[in-house]
Design a protein around this nucleic acid. Sequence first.
DNA 1: AACAAAAATTTCCTATTGGAAACTTTTGTG
DNA 2: CACAAAAGTTTCCAATAGGAAATTTTTGTT
Lengths: 207, 207
Amino acid sequence: MAEDPSQFFSVEETETLGTESTVEPLQLGKRVKDIRLSHNLTLEEASKRTGLARSTLSKIENEQISPTFTAVQKLAKGLNIDIPQLFSSPKESRTAGRRDITRKNEGKPHPTPTYEHEMLAAQLSNKKILPYKTTVRARNFSEYPSWVRHDGEEFMLVLKGSVILHTEFYEPVEMFEGDSTYYDGGMGHALVSTSEEDAEVLWVTSS
Amino acid sequence: MAEDPSQFFSVEETETLGTESTVEPLQLGKRVKDIRLSHNLTLEEASKRTGLARSTLSKIENEQISPTFTAVQKLAKGLNIDIPQLFSSPKESRTAGRRDITRKNEGKPHPTPTYEHEMLAAQLSNKKILPYKTTVRARNFSEYPSWVRHDGEEFMLVLKGSVILHTEFYEPVEMFEGDSTYYDGGMGHALVSTSEEDAEVLWVTSS
DNA sequence: AACAAAAATTTCCTATTGGAAACTTTTGTG
DNA sequence: CACAAAAGTTTCCAATAGGAAATTTTTGTT
């Protein structure tokens, strides 16, 4: 959309970085071992699946060597794990063990010319899912300067009224209460209200 | 929840795996180079930041060597990129450039004893966000055998009726139409309808 | 507890990575 | 377009990863 919630809120902090490379632990070996064991595989079996030697696997698990990227790829493929997941931080999500309830109309407001965004679960940071309840004021596609593309994926559900969904590469579609859509955030997109009153939608973007 | 959508649908295909590891391209070198250039760094500067030799960086960028994991860590730290992102697949999300619209009550149904799940955007696989419209039939927490913990995070919005949200570590809370919640999927959780009719919620889980 | 079988680790060797310096290419300035 | 400076690549060697087989440890059975 020309105005996407995630464009307006600086919701998630960015990681700070030192200029010198003290490489953190990130127990790759331990993780690999846990995964292998959780699949109930012996080194021998894991070796067959990954194409890496038993000895190599053992050394990786015991952190005796730093596997090459090629080895990591084989590992990931053979044990059916995806690499991002394999490395994704033990600086785990701040949501761990938490819950946040947002009562109706009590989200964190953020108005823009064409939308009235209300961020839900605003107490929690570093969320994997960013939920907004949004009121669509625009009545005309021309009110949008140009649409924006951004990373991630989006889901939208019409809560009240009706809208026209404009998306790059596709024909505009009218959507009514209860209809929903899912699309690549990388495609330009925008919403226009077609109902008497302003339309309301739930907008969810992946981080 | 005792019954989580993601527990019941085998929604996303699991990657098939050959027993032999023909490792896919994944242009790591190109990516690294793009990132370096986007920061307007010369190899010399990147070398200083990462602690890797100019020559090593060059070879990595030109895919002449497969860096060790240690090297990758230094790279990531020095250039301020996070490793998951660095690797996240150019076998990119099947959502790329796509859009899927689900009309009201036309999701892919999946009934269970206590919930009536309807998966939205079921055409798209490998989604980062998994949206369900769910009818809550349970009237009593005792209908749940035991609650389940799983990876990822969840968002829930009450669409119709009212429910009690049970979550481990927290007191149960009654939620009404328009209320929403966000929580760690790793906490046990379950929903009970408290309205005359079955309650309806939108459930969204991160993949 | 003693033994055999299975699993994991270590050794030893080859292949590949990583770094210093030489070399080549590109950029930009008169 | 010649030249110098900067950027990038290649070479050569030392350090480390990866694989086959030997060795050790663990597991399970009597």
